[in-house]
Write a protein that binds this DNA or RNA. Structure first.
Length: 558
RNA sequence: UGGGGCGUAGCCAAGUGGUAAGGCAUCGGGUUUUGAUCCCGUGUACCGCAGGUUCGAAUCCUGCCGCCCCAGCCA
């Protein structure tokens, strides 16, 4: 971060705490529940939690908040570790689970009972709900609220011993049933769940609730700043209540910031899971998903994701950030780092009538226009080429400076050609162009500086390789699908288009993790999950001012 | 209609009493064998509204309005 850049409110608090001597070192934690894959919203939290300690020489725990077995699995644990690592962060030896503290948590629960501020309730879930009151009316005390410490201790021990069925008993904090803050109306601390836990197996049949487990885990790990999202603001009084009652050696401070929402994307694990379960997408790592796994497979660089959340900032205001900001971050990184290649997505054949048959010339092409250290490669050039269908128009508007009947265009790294004849099929569709080339204009030669308005990309037919290229678009048709009554109704039916493309030969050797730019088209990468090597994903298009002009022209016509 | 938050340009976001940074988008223009990149330039933000305090307020006070979150034995 540069000197002139201002710090967000959390970093300000942290540097104040460091300057005042309140803390010598900062400790944070990223506490995902392993019940789904991480998404763009989590990237924000990961970058914040690991970022502040990276900047101040502190430490960060990766802690799995695994207090609700049944919804959680080790598959998710592994996926989360992979994603955090890929994003570029290192938790060192600080990988923990809330379940690592189950014994200490249970001891703390006993202590609360002994202090008379927790009790075992035998009301059913429905009864508890009806006793809780509403937002505007206070709740009522449970008839079991005043059980003796002895009885509570006995009941709690029997809960743990497995003497009761799920839901038969629950341990509750004794706070205030008339509190305007619902979280303080005797919240549940422990519930009975006779299910196997992904980390502790069958050693427990009672499991602590989030508020209780999270607060104490923070204290045990000596977290200085417990950073979470805004919806937990109401929980802070409860967080502090636990600390006040139990007085742990270390007292962490909870600070809340707003979630990051991405336009045209969903960031709800429940809904993301539904997309996967219902087969609407291929999986959690479908390149259209806003999950870290999906974006990685799509080809978004980790650095772009980090840059994106940095641009979004840390505040307490609800935000819905435009997709363009993310795409800008992706383009910025890729523009700098991706080697250039040639590929034709929607091929149209061009025959150079005055070019010798059975001849192949090798044309030298730069791998990056601004970075000569990337070197060059050779492209085969011959009599029959593929060009992009969009680069030819039979009746072209004035400003269209690509190929048109009688018109000239430069073939990138090749020759200038002229369109002499248009061949059509019975349906009247253009299927081939007869062109002539100007031998004097070979790229790089002495007389190659003749100017023509346009330059288009191409691939030699005989030497090209076939590939299936997937073109992705946003999954939803509305900016905020999170608030849609039913997200199914706002799905974009055309979020995936697959085309049969022609690629330059060098692309056959492309590594999976190596994004490239197909010149004039966008950034692409080989799909890591496809057995077939010739499946590519479009990461993002290039900025396209021609498309913008076309769109404006269309709107003016209407 | 209880409680907790938030309101600065289309989207983000600085600003912490002295007269509104920056990014993305937009719109112009230049360079260019990617209509990309790059480079210039481009915004009347009634700082949610209304009062008040002050020589001076986006910043302090009061009232109002709008939006978000909370009634899981989820996190």
């Amino acid at each position: 971060m540069s000197e002139t850049e201002s710090r967000d409110f959390i970093r300000q608090i942290i540097s104040d705490d460091l300057e005042s001597g309140k803390h010598q070192q900062i400790t944070t934690r990223f506490p995902p529940e392993p019940n789904g894959y991480l998404h763009i919203g989590h990237v924000m939290s990961i970058c914040l939690n690991f970022g502040v300690t990276e900047e101040t020489g502190g430490r960060t725990y990766l802690r799995f908040d695994d207090t609700n077995p049944g919804k959680e699995s080790s598959e998710y644990v592994e996926a989360i570790k992979r994603d955090v690592r890929w994003l570029g962060f290192d938790w060192g030896g600080r990988l923990t689970h809330a379940s690592d503290y189950f014994n200490k948590l249970y001891d703390a629960a006993i202590k609360l009972v002994e202090m008379g501020v927790a009790y075992v309730d035998s009301l059913s879930a429905e009864e508890i709900r009806s006793y809780r009151g509403t937002l505007t009316e206070p709740g009522k005390n449970s008839p079991h609220r005043d059980r003796s410490v002895k009885e509570n201790l006995d009941l709690l021990a029997r809960m743990r011993a497995g003497e009761f069925d799920d839901g038969e008993m629950v341990l509750r904090a004794k706070i205030d049933m008339s509190s305007p803050n619902m979280n303080l109306r005797d919240p549940a601390l422990y519930r009975i769940r006779h299910v196997e836990h992904q980390h502790t197996g069958n050693t427990w049949c009672i499991y602590p609730m989030y508020d209780f487990a999270h607060t104490l885990s923070d204290a045990f790990e000596e977290i200085t700043h417990s950073l979470c999202t805004l919806e937990f603001e109401d929980h802070r009084p409860l967080y502090n209540w636990f600390l006040d009652q139990l007085e742990p050696r270390h007292r962490p401070r909870q600070i809340e910031f707003s979630r990051l929402n991405l336009a045209y994307a969903i960031t709800s694990k429940r809904k993301l899971n539904a997309l996967v379960e219902e087969g609407i997408v291929e999986g959690w790592d479908d390149p259209r998903m806003p999950t870290i796994a999906g974006m990685r497979r799509r080809g978004y660089p980790a650095a772009a994701l980090r840059d994106f959340v940095h641009r979004a900032g840390v505040t307490k205001k609800d935000k819905l950030i435009e997709m363009g900001v993310l795409e800008n971050s992706v383009r910025e990184i890729l523009g700098e780092e991706a080697p250039r290649r040639m590929a034709v997505l929607k091929p149209l054949k061009v025959v150079l009538t005055n070019y010798p048959e059975n001849t192949v010339e090798m044309m030298e092409a730069m791998n990056h226009p601004a970075r000569p250290e990337f070197g060059t490669r050779e492209l085969p050039f011959s009599r029959e080429l593929w060009i992009e269908q969009d680069d030819f128009m039979e009746e072209a508007p004035r400003k269209f400076f690509r190929l048109k009947p009688g018109g000239e265009v430069r073939l990138r790294f090749g020759y200038i050609i002229r369109c002499d004849e248009v061949i059509k099929n019975d349906a009247g569709e253009v299927i081939e162009l007869r062109c002539s080339y100007d031998p004097e204009t070979r790229s790089g030669s002495a007389n190659s500086d003749r100017k023509v308005k346009g330059t288009i990309h191409w691939v030699s037919c005989a030497e090209s390789i076939d590939a299936s290229v997937r073109l992705y678009d946003r999954l939803f048709t509305v900016a905020n699908p999170n608030t849609a009554e039913d997200f199914h109704a706002v799905m974009n039916a055309d979020s995936l288009q697959t085309v049969a493309a022609k690629l330059e030969p060098s692309l056959a050797a492309l590594e999976n993790d190596e994004p490239v730019q197909f010149e004039r088209l966008g950034y692409f990468c080989a799909d890591s999950e496809s057995e077939d090597e010739s499946v590519f994903n479009r990461i993002v298009t290039l900025r396209d001012s021609w498309a913008k002009l076309e769109k404006q022209a269309m709107q003016e016509q209407e």
